[in-house]
């Protein structure tokens, strides 16, 4: 699963695409780890190109958020379709990781 990444002043915007489930969650995790360097201070994980996520994919989001928090880096999620947004809310993830409507909104929130 290729993840598109953009980097601006220590903030990384990562855009995975397609489906994230138990069949590719390990790959999602390693691609995400590869996209980040220790000098990055913030990650915006955009779901604009993601159609589907299962609990296996959400586990990777949680582990990534945990890793970033441990080194005092920030994370925000954005641009989810309604079904993905519902799944994050039902799982209580919206209480531990901020979710924004758009990439621009997430970047602004992390920069503040």
């Amino acid at each position: 699963m290729p993840i598109d990444t953009e980097r601006d002043n220590g903030t990384v915007v990562a855009r995975p695409s397609g489906r994230i489930d138990s069949s590719n969650s390990r790959e999602f995790q390693s691609e995400l780890e590869a996209a980040l360097t220790d000098s990055d201070t913030a990650l915006v994980l955009s779901f604009e190109n993601v159609d589907y996520i299962s609990s296996a994919g959400m586990r990777v989001v949680l582990l990534t958020a945990r890793g970033l928090q441990r080194r005092r880096a920030k994370i925000a999620l954005c641009s989810m379709n309604e079904s993905i947004r519902a799944v994050f809310k039902i799982s209580g993830f919206d209480k531990i990781v901020p979710i924004h409507e758009s990439t621009a909104e997430a970047v602004t929130a992390l920069g503040a």
């Binding site: 959400m58 949680l62 945990r66 928090q69 039902i90 799982s91 209480k95 531990i96």
Partner: peptide, 22 residues
């Protein structure tokens, strides 16, 4: 499932059944 702990303490598990019920 634990739906309330913070990032550091949140275990992941039991979500599949919880999502299905919801």
């Amino acid at each position: 499932p634990d739906l309330t702990s913070g990032i550091e303490d949140r275990p992941i598990g039991g979500l599949g059944v919880h999502l299905t019920k919801s």
